[in-house]
C-alpha cells in the first residue's frame, strides 16, 4: 500500500516539483501516472523508491514510513518493489540469465533457488531458451522483457515502470503492457509512468494526471483488462462528462475510511 499525505518536494535550486499532493494506492491497483514533461512524475517515482526525500508531508510505502526510514533500511524498502526503466538498464557483459539472477544475488538468495526462479520468470515473459543471449543480441522489446523479468524475480509487492514502452515499437509496447496487466491480475500493484495516451485508454485502470506538481486528475477507466475496483464505494464517484466508463477516483481520505470499515 502506498499513501502520500500533503507531500511537497522542493529541490535545492528552488524548483517545487510536487506541491502538497495526497493520494493512496491500494494493493493490487493498476495505476497510470500521466502528465507532461517536468510535471513532477519522475519526482513522484523517486519519492516512492526513496531516491529523493520529500520536503514536507508523510509517505508510507509497503509498510515503510519514508519520512523516518533509516539509510540502512532503504534496500529493504526497494526489495518490495521491482523497477522497470525506459532504457532497460541491462548489464551488457551479462547474459539474459545473469541479468535477471543478479537481482536475486544482490539480496543473498541461494544459487539453487535463483536457478529455479529465474527460469520460471523467463518463461513467464516469453524468453525461455534465450538465457545465454547478451542484451545486445536482443530486440528492444525482448530487452524490456528481460528488464521486466528482473523486476519480477524477487516477487515484489509493487512494480514501478518508468516509460516502459518509450524505447520500443507499438506492437512490442502492447506486449509489454499486456504482461504488466497480467502481472497486476496476479495481485501485484503496478504503477506505470507513460506519455502514451493510446495505451492508457486501452488498458485503463486508475489514471493519475500530474500537472505542475499537483494532481490535476485522478480517475478510473474501465476496460477489458481492468474493471472498476469492487472495493470503491460508487456513491462517492463522479461521472466524467461524455464517457460513462470514466469515474472520479476516491481521495486518499475516502479510501482510508473504506479500509477502516
Amino acid at each position: 500500500m502506498i499513501h502520500l499525505e500533503n507531500v511537497s518536494k522542493v529541490y535545492p535550486n528552488g524548483t517545487e516539483a510536487l506541491k502538497n499532493i495526497s493520494l493512496s494506492i491500494q494493493k493490487g491497483e493498476f495505476v497510470f501516472i500521466v502528465g507532461s514533461s517536468g510535471a513532477g512524475k519522475s519526482t513522484f517515482l523517486k519519492l516512492l523508491i526513496h531516491e529523493e526525500t520529500a520536503t514536507f508531508g508523510k509517505i508510507q510505502v509497503n509498510g515503510h514510513d519514508l519520512m523516518k526510514i533509516k539509510r540502512r533500511k532503504v534496500p529493504y524498502l526497494r526489495r518490495t518493489m521491482g523497477i522497470v526503466f525506459q532504457d532497460f538498464r541491462l548489464i551488457d557483459k551479462m547474459n539474459v540469465y545473469d541479468n535477471v539472477a543478479f537481482a536475486m544475488r544482490v539480496i543473498g538468495t541461494p544459487e539453487k533457488q535463483i536457478k529455479k526462479r529465474v527460469r520460471e520468470v523467463l518463461r513467464l515473459v516469453g524468453l525461455h531458451g534465450k538465457e545465454k543471449r547478451r542484451p545486445n543480441e536482443l530486440s528492444g522489446g525482448e530487452q524490456q522483457r528481460v528488464s521486466l523479468a528482473r523486476a519480477l524475480v524477487n516477487r515484489p509487492e509493487t512494480i514501478i515502470a518508468d516509460e516502459p514502452t518509450g524505447n520500443i515499437d507499438p506492437e512490442r509496447s502492447h506486449e509489454i503492457m499486456k504482461m504488466l496487466a497480467d502481472i497486476n491480475n496476479s495481485g501485484t500493484t503496478v504503477i506505470i509512468v507513460t506519455h502514451e495516451h493510446d495505451l492508457v485508454e486501452e488498458f485503463g485502470g486508475r489514471i493519475i494526471r500530474i500537472d505542475d506538481g499537483e494532481i490535476a486528475e485522478d480517475k478510473y477507466i474501465s476496460t477489458k483488462y481492468h474493471e472498476l475496483p469492487v472495493s470503491i464505494n460508487t456513491s462517492n464517484l463522479v461521472l466524467d462528462l461524455g464517457d460513462d466508463t470514466t469515474q472520479q477516483a476516491p481521495s486518499a481520505d475516502t479510501l482510508g475510511k473504506e479500509r477502516n470499515q
Binding site: 540502512r72 534496500p75 538498464r89
Partner: peptide, 16 residues
C-alpha cells in the same frame, strides 16, 4: 557506477 545503480535499485545493501 551503472552496475552499482542497478544493484541499489534492486535492494542491494551498502555492505553487499
Amino acid at each position: 557506477r551503472f552496475e552499482i545503480s542497478i544493484m541499489k535499485s534492486v535492494g542491494a545493501t551498502n555492505a553487499f
